[in-house]
Simulated assay, not measured.
Amino acid sequence: MTSQLPHDAHLWPLLLYAALVVLMASGMLLISHFLGQRHEEPATDEIYESGIPVTGSARLLFPIHFYIVAMFFVIFDLEAVFVVSWAISLRQVGWAGYVGVLIFILILVAVLIYEWRIGALDFGPNSKKILKAYYRRLQKKARA
């Protein structure tokens, strides 16, 4: 004898668990609000890092190259995930999957070439600018 229960009938344990989690979390927050200590001293708001006094702002400015490297890592890491998942399911997706991943890789290569052409991948000093400045300096010294 098979039961003809609707598909949603098996969700009650999950809903009960979710309700208990919400009830417990809100109960802990309410108890800590009423029983917790209140501190009004000025030292409460000061930053304390392993006993070392604060020397400056925590807002350090990093060069944009660090963020570009991070974005490239994410982009090419995701590319690897997509290509590996395509390779795993190669027999199921067939030629349509092959054409899709080929288009995907060609778009990524085109974007990489575009970024290289506009100079987004130049992280070090520009050797042409350095040589121009060096030769200008030599010419100034020769005139003097």
Rank of each mutant, 00 (worst) to 15 (best):
G56Y: 08
P42E: 07
L60K: 13
M71R: 11
H65G: 03
F72W: 09
I75H: 10
I64A: 10
E79V: 06
F73D: 03
Y48G: 00
W95K: 04
S85L: 13
Q92K: 12
I47M: 05
L90T: 02
P63D: 07
T55P: 04
E49V: 08
Y48K: 09
Y67G: 01
F73W: 06
A87L: 15
L30H: 08
M28D: 02
A43E: 06
P63G: 03
I31C: 13
G27M: 10
Y48Q: 05
V74T: 09
H65S: 10
V74I: 14
W86N: 01
R91I: 03
I88E: 11
M71Y: 11
R59A: 09
S85F: 11
L29C: 06
G94F: 05
I47E: 01
L90V: 06
Y67W: 13
A87N: 13
F34Y: 15
F76G: 02
V69C: 13
E49M: 11
D45K: 12
E41V: 01
V54I: 10
M71E: 08
P53S: 04
S50P: 00
A80I: 08
Y67F: 15
E49S: 09
A43W: 08
I47H: 04
L35H: 12
S32V: 02
F66W: 15
E40F: 15
G94T: 00
L30W: 14
T44G: 03
L90H: 11
I64N: 07
A58V: 06
F76P: 03
T55G: 12
E79P: 00
F82T: 00
Y48M: 04
F62Y: 14
I88M: 14
E79A: 12
L61P: 05
Q37M: 08
S89I: 01
Q37D: 11
W95V: 01
A96I: 03
A58P: 10
G36N: 08
W95N: 04
I31A: 15
A87R: 13
I47L: 10
V74S: 12
E46V: 00
I31N: 11
H39D: 07
E41D: 07
A58M: 14
W86R: 03
H65L: 04
H33T: 08
F34W: 13
G27Q: 08
L60C: 04
L35K: 15
F66P: 01
F82H: 02
V69N: 13
L35S: 15
A70R: 14
H65T: 04
R91W: 15
W86S: 00
E40Y: 15
P42D: 04
S57L: 12
G56I: 01
F76K: 09
S89L: 10
V69G: 08
F72V: 02
V81N: 03
E79C: 12
E49R: 10
F82R: 02
P53C: 02
Q37S: 13
A87D: 08
T44M: 09
D45M: 09
L35Q: 15
R91A: 05
G56K: 12
T55I: 12
F62T: 01
L29N: 04
F66Q: 03
I47N: 01
F73Y: 08
F82W: 07
G27L: 12
W95E: 02
V93A: 00
V69P: 01
S32Y: 11
L35G: 11
R91H: 14
M28W: 09
S50L: 14
I64Q: 13
A87Q: 12
L90E: 05
I52H: 07
A58C: 09
M71D: 05
F66D: 00
A43T: 00
P42W: 07
